[in-house]
Simulated assay, not measured.
Amino acid sequence: MAFIDRECVRHLLEAPDPDATLVFVRGECVVLSDAEIDDAHRGLIIARRRDLTAHIHGDTITDQQLDLLAERLDNVVHDLGA
C-alpha cells in the first residue's frame, strides 16, 4: 500500500512557500511551511521542497517524474514505520 502518491508530490512542488515540507500525519501527507513544523511534526518529515528540485529535470514536471519521486518518498514513509 502506497502512502505517498503523485498528488502529494505535486502539492509539495507547487506549494507557494519555497520552504514547504511534506509531513506524514495520521496516515496522510500534509504540506506545511517550515514555520508550522513543531517538535511533534519534526520526526514526521518526509521531504523538503528544496531537496526535491534537484531530482526534477526540465521546466515541466512530468507524471513519470512525479511517480518516481512518490515511490522514493513512499519508501521513506515505510522506513519511518508507517
Results as ranks from 00 to 15, higher is better:
29 C>Y: 01
29 C>H: 04
1 M>C: 01
45 I>K: 08
63 D>F: 10
8 C>T: 07
51 D>N: 10
28 E>A: 09
78 H>L: 10
81 G>C: 03
47 A>V: 07
69 L>C: 06
68 L>E: 11
24 F>Q: 03
12 L>D: 00
29 C>E: 00
62 T>E: 09
22 L>E: 06
63 D>M: 09
32 L>N: 02
51 D>T: 11
2 A>N: 03
56 I>Y: 14
70 A>N: 04
64 Q>I: 13
81 G>F: 05
50 R>V: 00
30 V>Q: 04
35 A>V: 05
22 L>Q: 05
52 L>Y: 11
79 D>N: 15
53 T>C: 08
44 L>P: 02
12 L>K: 06
15 A>S: 13
31 V>F: 01
4 I>E: 03
43 G>K: 02
52 L>W: 09
76 V>K: 12
81 G>A: 02
52 L>S: 12
63 D>K: 15
77 V>F: 10
37 I>W: 01
57 H>V: 15
27 G>W: 08
70 A>S: 02
54 A>W: 13
62 T>I: 13
62 T>N: 14
66 L>D: 12
38 D>I: 09
65 Q>S: 14
18 P>H: 09
25 V>S: 08
15 A>T: 08
54 A>K: 15
55 H>S: 15
6 R>C: 13
56 I>V: 15
71 E>V: 00
33 S>N: 08
47 A>I: 03
22 L>R: 02
5 D>T: 06
46 I>S: 05
66 L>G: 06
23 V>D: 01
10 R>C: 09
14 E>R: 12
52 L>M: 14
72 R>D: 02
62 T>D: 12
82 A>H: 02
5 D>H: 11
21 T>G: 00
24 F>G: 06
62 T>R: 14
13 L>F: 13
3 F>C: 02
67 D>R: 12
11 H>Q: 12
78 H>A: 12
74 D>I: 05
74 D>A: 07
70 A>I: 00
50 R>N: 07
26 R>P: 06
56 I>G: 15
14 E>T: 15
38 D>N: 12
22 L>G: 08
33 S>D: 09
56 I>K: 11
11 H>L: 08
40 A>M: 08
65 Q>V: 11
77 V>H: 09
71 E>D: 04
51 D>G: 08
59 D>T: 14
60 T>L: 15
54 A>C: 13
25 V>T: 09
12 L>T: 05
81 G>P: 09
64 Q>V: 15
14 E>M: 14
13 L>I: 10
35 A>N: 07
40 A>L: 00
57 H>W: 13
18 P>Y: 09
36 E>Y: 06
64 Q>M: 13
28 E>S: 09
5 D>A: 10
30 V>A: 02
35 A>Y: 06
70 A>E: 05
33 S>Y: 04
33 S>R: 10
21 T>W: 03
10 R>E: 10
54 A>Y: 15
